[in-house]
Design a protein around this nucleic acid. Sequence first.
DNA 1: TGTTGGATTTGAGCTAGATCAAAACTGTGA
DNA 2: TCACAGTTTTGATCTAGCTCAAATCCAACA
Lengths: 228, 228
Amino acid sequence: MAKVCADSICKIELLRALSPEVRDCLLSRARTRDVKRGETLSWQGDRAETLKIVTRGWVKLFRVSEEGHEAVVNTLGHGQSFDEVPALLGGESAVSAEAITDATVLMLNLSDICSCTNARAELSQAVLSAAQIHMNSMTNQIEGLKIKTATQRLGEFLLQQSGEHDGLRSFVLPFGKVVLAGMLGMKPESLSRAFSRLKDVGVCSAGGRVEINDPATLRDWMLQQSIR
Amino acid sequence: MAKVCADSICKIELLRALSPEVRDCLLSRARTRDVKRGETLSWQGDRAETLKIVTRGWVKLFRVSEEGHEAVVNTLGHGQSFDEVPALLGGESAVSAEAITDATVLMLNLSDICSCTNARAELSQAVLSAAQIHMNSMTNQIEGLKIKTATQRLGEFLLQQSGEHDGLRSFVLPFGKVVLAGMLGMKPESLSRAFSRLKDVGVCSAGGRVEINDPATLRDWMLQQSIR
DNA sequence: TGTTGGATTTGAGCTAGATCAAAACTGTGA
DNA sequence: TCACAGTTTTGATCTAGCTCAAATCCAACA
């Protein structure tokens, strides 16, 4: 049985949407898995037995093409989940998942749903919300890849990070730059050059720490790119 | 009240998943909208009042960046739907929608759900299925944009089209090449050049008609690209 | 404290795809 | 049948981002 800090659970949106009964029922059957950086959690095409929630560290979702190239589809941190829909409907995972830092993942089996009243309805609702969030994020990504430059995508990512750190102008990148490059759809060398281009608009990057002197300047600069 | 050919409805997966009662109830309150090519159906950011199903012609989902560039996020043909999740949960549309051929759209209001037993549960299920399909397609797109060449993406699209035409080696493109270019994340000029590159592997394109001499050859060629 | 393997940066080309411009084609209505 | 407007193709350049190679940097660990 899962032993998860109650405090930690409160921060997981997907679980907060459930009634205490259903939540406890699910958690009582849940498993947690601790993994080291580099370990694979699940494979694309495998039957998704469980809904996974990252409770510590970071996980990347990715695909590998027949030619052996890797595309990072998303990176998930604390409280974020994946495989929600296939776990509920019974389908296969669309992506593989690997820990990019040491991490802990909570795995919920939705198929043997408890007998609580409304369990199914509550779960559907929660999973739909999660799907909506994922679809928005994917739509943003597609938009970025189709009509923005690599440097613009990096700028956007940094502003978003800054936002998640309560608007702090200085923060630490949550994972390495190789993964970040993959996430933004470029090579590590290009990411390095994108960072140096942003130096001119007051973005300093030293080690994993990034400092945005003036978010407004950065935002303006990004808009002026490719006006036409 | 909607007047929709029953025969046509049978081909719409989302509706087929519903019980006759719930389906009829929804359809009795539905509206259809006929639009000319170029007309806008809905705007990104607007509250999604209805779930939309394309019953005739083609519709593109797209976003326009602050700089005025357009990113086509998806193209939908007969029986395909959009805005499912926000229509059910009550949220805003993530994209704008425009007819790219003369088209008809069926609009279902999910908020005033009928009193049929299970209406809500059935709808959740159906919408979840639709979301799963959309997420898979978006994941494919992201993978393609990140690690495939423009020509590879075109080849993939053509094979998929051929598949939807019962594996026929000759078929007509469902919409113009400007839209197709946007959908594949490139400029019309590049699309034209991608087509001419595929001539060497037996893909003929004349007017809107495409002929794939040998799908296997095309598939092989795509794999040999960028092996490394 | 030195070593080692990975991560990151820098440098020097190269190329896919964009841009800009013009020509060729297509359908549509007068 | 002709002319017009939109679509598609072709040609000539330009450039962002990739590739290949080497130099640094860095943290873990003996």
